[in-house]
Each structure stands twice: as structure tokens, then as C-alpha cells.
């Protein structure tokens, strides 16, 4: 049994069209999944149904053996955290410390334990010097790191990043990606919704969504070789891979092609 199992999941805002349409996915513990897709392809809706913010029309979501429902939403949310796109709109506390504590307060963690955990996780995301700062004095990247610390402090081991880097400057973006890498190394399961194909390349597997359906769900390397997947879901490949794919048709350039692959996938 997989860690996260999604079976026959559908969701719709109205009766006519399904925003999510018959989704079946299994995700293993410790995996890094990137979710790619056009605007309106259902990426964010998928994320919201996973944490129980939206109730699916049909289908089941099972996380670590618990099936998501009204009664179990509280238990599920202990395991799964979500970092949203706008850093400002998820900062609940008046200070960094308060914000990291918010989730733990809801879980009724005793105060002494909270203080310990706040220090521990603030150090982990490199925000220890900012504990008493107010959100207005922080950069977007710092706020996102505080959000991560808040989720980690709740002992969640699945983190969803819902376009969490899209409102950040290039430097903060790179920094956040580095944090996600260390989280992945620590064994957390990561689901990263993104528009940026270069970010998606870091994942173990890529899920391409199109019009609410799973268009492709394969290992990163496999999916990148398949030009069709991308062009038909209106996604663009990075230049290096585009080049590599066109060189692939000729065996003469095999060496260059492999180099480009290596470059694109390790960057």
C-alpha cells in the first residue's frame, strides 16, 4: 500500500464541468513529485482536496492508511502541510514566533514543548535571529521559510508547495529550492506544484495535468524524453532538453545529447 493513494477522485465547482476528473495516483513515502500543468488544469484544486479544504465529488484519498473525510480531516492535516503562493496571506501570527506556533497551538502542544520546537525549526530554516520580527519587516522568501517551519513543527511529513516560489525573486527562489532539497533528503514527501519546468526537473516523478485529468505520471527522465507529452499539454521544455530531443534523432550526436541531458537534469 502506498503512502498517498488517490482513487477515482473527481471535483467540480458546478455540475457541468469537472475541475478534477477521475484521478488515480499513488505516491510513495519520501518521494518528490512535481505537478505541472496549465492554468486551470486543476493543480491547485488537487492540492486543496488533498488537505481536505475542498470536498471531492467522488473518489477517495487515503494518506498513511487514513481515508480523508469530515471526521478524519483533523488527523490528515497533522500529516500534510501546504505552503501557498502568496507569502503574506498565510502568515497568521503577529511575529515569526507566533506564526510557527500557530499550528502547534491548534494541536494543543504544551507550551514548553512549543518553545523548544520553535527554536529547533526556526534554526532549521535559518530564521532563528528573526523570531520576534513582524511579517512586514520580512522578505517573501523569509515568510515562506517561516511557513515551512510552521508545518515542520506540526510534525507533518508531507509538504505541498502550491506555486510557493512564483512570487519570489530569483535569489529567494533558489534559496527555497535548496531548502526543499534538504527536506527531501530528510525523508519528507514533497508535492511541488509549479509552472517552472526547471524546478520540476528536480523531482523524482512528474505529474502532468491537463483539463483536470492526469495527462502523464512518470519518472522525470522518462517524461522528459517524451516530447509529445509536453507539446500536447502546451508545456515548453527547457532549451537544453529541446535541443537534446532534436539531436536524439541522429545517432552521430549521441554524445552531445547525453551531455545536455546530464546538464539539464543536474542543474
Amino acid at each position: 500500500m502506498s503512502y498517498i493513494e488517490i482513487q477515482k477522485l473527481s471535483y467540480s465547482y458546478n455540475e457541468k464541468t469537472n475541475v478534477l476528473d477521475d484521478i488515480n495516483i499513488d505516491i510513495e513515502k519520501g518521494e518528490w513529485i512535481a505537478v505541472l500543468g496549465h492554468n486551470g488544469s486543476g493543480k491547485s484544486t488537487l492540492a486543496k482536496t488533498l488537505v481536505g479544504l475542498l470536498e471531492p465529488k467522488t473518489g477517495d484519498i487515503t494518506i498513511d492508511g487514513i481515508t480523508l473525510g469530515e471526521e478524519t480531516a483533523y488527523e490528515i492535516r497533522k500529516k500534510i502541510g501546504i505552503v501557498f503562493q502568496n507569502p503574506d496571506n498565510q502568515f497568521v501570527g503577529v511575529t515569526v514566533k507566533d506564526d510557527i506556533a500557530f499550528g502547534m497551538e491548534n494541536l494543543c502542544v504544551p507550551r514548553e514543548e512549543m518553545l523548544e520546537k520553535i527554536n529547533f525549526y526556526a534554526k532549521k530554516v535559518n530564521m532563528l535571529d528573526f523570531l520576534d520580527k513582524e511579517p512586514a519587516t520580512l522578505s517573501g522568501g523569509q515568510k515562506q521559510r517561516v511557513a515551512i517551519a510552521g508545518i515542520l513543527a506540526m510534525q507533518s511529513d508531507i509538504i505541498i508547495f502550491d506555486e510557493a516560489t512564483s512570487m519570489l525573486d530569483p535569489y529567494s527562489k533558489e534559496e527555497l529550492i535548496q531548502y526543499i532539497k534538504t527536506l527531501h533528503k530528510d525523508g519528507l514527501t514533497i508535492i511541488m506544484i509549479t509552472h517552472d519546468i526547471n524546478e520540476a526537473l528536480l523531482a523524482d516523478r512528474i505529474l502532468v495535468m491537463n483539463k483536470g485529468k492526469v495527462f502523464a505520471f512518470q519518472e522525470t527522465e522518462k517524461i522528459m524524453k517524451d516530447k509529445e507529452t509536453f507539446t500536447s499539454s502546451n508545456l515548453e521544455l527547457p532549451v537544453a532538453l529541446e535541443l537534446a530531443n532534436s539531436l536524439a534523432q541522429d545517432d552521430k550526436f549521441k554524445e552531445i545529447r547525453d551531455k545536455l541531458w546530464e546538464y539539464a537534469l543536474t542543474k
Partner: peptide, 22 residues
């Protein structure tokens, strides 16, 4: 969005919570 963020962090209005500030 804030309501979503709060709910996903297990906030339930009216339920007992512990406090960081004492």
C-alpha cells in the same frame, strides 16, 4: 486564502488551543 491557510494548519474555531504567550 488566509482562512484556507488557517484551516490547513488545523485551526477549528471554538476548539481548545494551547498558547505560546503566557
Amino acid at each position: 486564502e488566509l482562512a484556507n491557510a488557517m484551516e490547513s494548519r488545523n485551526f477549528v474555531p471554538g476548539e481548545p488551543r494551547t498558547r505560546i504567550h503566557e
